[in-house]
Amino acid sequence: QAPETKIVDKSRVACDGGEGALGHPRVWLQIPEDTGWVECPYCDCKYVLKGSKADAL
Protein backbone atom coordinates (compact mmCIF):
# COMPACT_ATOMS: atom_id res chain seq x y z
CA GLN A 1 0.00 0.00 0.00
CA ALA A 2 1.15 3.54 -0.73
CA PRO A 3 2.57 5.63 2.12
CA GLU A 4 0.21 8.20 3.63
CA THR A 5 0.50 11.94 2.90
CA LYS A 6 -0.49 14.42 5.61
CA ILE A 7 -0.91 18.18 5.22
CA VAL A 8 0.41 19.91 8.38
CA ASP A 9 0.41 23.48 9.73
CA LYS A 10 3.84 23.44 11.38
CA SER A 11 7.31 22.78 9.97
CA ARG A 12 8.25 20.49 12.89
CA VAL A 13 6.20 17.30 13.20
CA ALA A 14 6.38 14.07 15.20
CA CYS A 15 5.70 10.67 13.62
CA ASP A 16 5.20 7.41 15.52
CA GLY A 17 3.63 5.31 12.79
CA GLY A 18 0.15 6.11 14.09
CA GLU A 19 -0.67 2.56 15.18
CA GLY A 20 0.13 2.61 18.89
CA ALA A 21 2.22 -0.42 19.86
CA LEU A 22 2.34 -1.49 16.21
CA GLY A 23 3.92 1.79 15.08
CA HIS A 24 7.58 2.78 15.36
CA PRO A 25 9.67 4.91 17.75
CA ARG A 26 8.55 8.56 17.72
CA VAL A 27 10.80 10.73 15.60
CA TRP A 28 10.71 14.51 15.18
CA LEU A 29 10.98 15.71 11.60
CA GLN A 30 11.81 19.20 10.32
CA ILE A 31 10.24 20.23 7.01
CA PRO A 32 12.80 22.19 4.95
CA GLU A 33 11.58 25.55 3.60
CA ASP A 34 13.02 24.87 0.13
CA THR A 35 11.05 21.64 -0.46
CA GLY A 36 8.01 22.09 1.79
CA TRP A 37 7.85 18.37 2.64
CA VAL A 38 9.65 15.59 4.51
CA GLU A 39 9.30 11.79 4.66
CA CYS A 40 9.47 9.68 7.81
CA PRO A 41 12.51 7.37 7.63
CA TYR A 42 10.54 4.56 9.31
CA CYS A 43 7.12 4.44 7.63
CA ASP A 44 7.64 6.73 4.59
CA CYS A 45 4.66 8.89 5.58
CA LYS A 46 5.02 12.19 3.72
CA TYR A 47 4.36 15.42 5.62
CA VAL A 48 3.59 18.46 3.46
CA LEU A 49 3.63 21.96 4.95
CA LYS A 50 0.32 23.72 4.27
CA GLY A 51 0.79 26.72 1.98
CA SER A 52 4.22 25.57 0.73
CA LYS A 53 5.02 25.01 -2.94
CA ALA A 54 4.73 21.24 -2.31
CA ASP A 55 1.15 21.82 -1.08
CA ALA A 56 0.29 23.41 -4.44
CA LEU A 57 1.15 20.22 -6.36
Rank of each mutant, 00 (worst) to 15 (best):
G23M: 11
V27Y: 03
H24Y: 04
A56L: 14
G17M: 03
K50M: 10
A54Y: 09
A2N: 12
V27S: 00
D55V: 00
G36M: 02
A56W: 14
R12D: 13
T5F: 15
A56V: 14
G20F: 06
R26G: 03
Y42Q: 11
W28H: 03
P3N: 11
Q1C: 15
P25K: 11
C15K: 00
L22P: 08
Y42R: 12
A21Y: 10
P25Q: 11
D16C: 12
W28G: 02
K50R: 14
L49S: 05
G18S: 06
A2K: 13
K53F: 08
D34I: 07
G36Y: 02
L29P: 01
V13P: 04
L57P: 11
W28C: 05
C40K: 07
C40M: 08
K50S: 09
V38H: 01
V38I: 13
A14P: 13
V8Q: 02
I31D: 02
V8G: 01
S52L: 05
A14R: 04
V8S: 05
E33L: 13
Q30S: 10
S52R: 00
P3T: 12
V8P: 09
S52V: 13
T5L: 11
D44V: 13
C45A: 15
G51E: 06
E4Y: 15
L29H: 03
G23L: 05
C43E: 01
T35L: 12
D44C: 14
D34V: 05
K50H: 11
R26F: 06
V27R: 00
C15H: 00
V13H: 02
W37V: 05
A21F: 09
K6S: 10
L57F: 14
W28K: 01
K50A: 12
P25A: 08
K50E: 10
P25E: 12
A54Q: 05
V8L: 01
V48T: 01
D55Y: 00
S52E: 09
K53A: 09
S52N: 04
A21Q: 11
D16Q: 09
Q30R: 09
L49H: 04
A56Q: 14
Y42P: 05
P25L: 08
G20I: 03
G18Y: 06
G18N: 07
Y42T: 07
D44N: 15
K46V: 14
W28L: 02
G17S: 02
R26L: 12
K53T: 10
G23I: 11
L49N: 07
V27K: 04
D55E: 09
V27G: 02
R26D: 05
H24C: 02
E19D: 10
Y47L: 09
H24R: 03
E4I: 14
T35R: 07
P41R: 03
V13E: 07
K50T: 06
E39V: 14
K46F: 07
A56K: 13
S52H: 04
Y42D: 06
A54E: 07
W28D: 01
E4C: 15
W37F: 13
P41L: 03
S11K: 08
C43P: 00
S11E: 09
D9A: 08
C15D: 00
R12A: 11
T5C: 15
G18E: 06
S52Q: 03
G36T: 03
C15S: 00
C45K: 15
I31G: 02
D9C: 13
D55C: 06
H24V: 04
E4W: 15
P25Y: 05
D44H: 15
A21D: 12
A14S: 10
W28P: 02
V13G: 02
K46I: 14
T35Y: 06
P41T: 04
H24K: 01
S11N: 12
T5D: 08
E39K: 15
H24L: 02
V13T: 01
E4S: 15
E33K: 09
A21C: 00
A54G: 08
V8T: 06
I31N: 00
Q1E: 11
C40I: 06
R26E: 07
A56E: 13
C43T: 02
K53L: 10
S11Q: 10
C40W: 07
L49R: 03
C40A: 05
V48R: 00
D9R: 01
E4V: 14
S11G: 06
K10C: 12
K46H: 06
L49F: 05
A54H: 09
T5I: 15
C45R: 15
W28I: 04
P25W: 08
R26S: 04
G18K: 09
L57T: 13
G20S: 06
V8E: 05
H24N: 03
P32R: 04
V8W: 04
R26P: 10
I31C: 08
Q30F: 13
A14C: 12
T35K: 08
A54V: 03
E4G: 15
T5G: 07
Y47F: 15
D34Y: 05
D16E: 12
G23P: 08
D34M: 05
L57D: 10
A14K: 07
K6L: 13
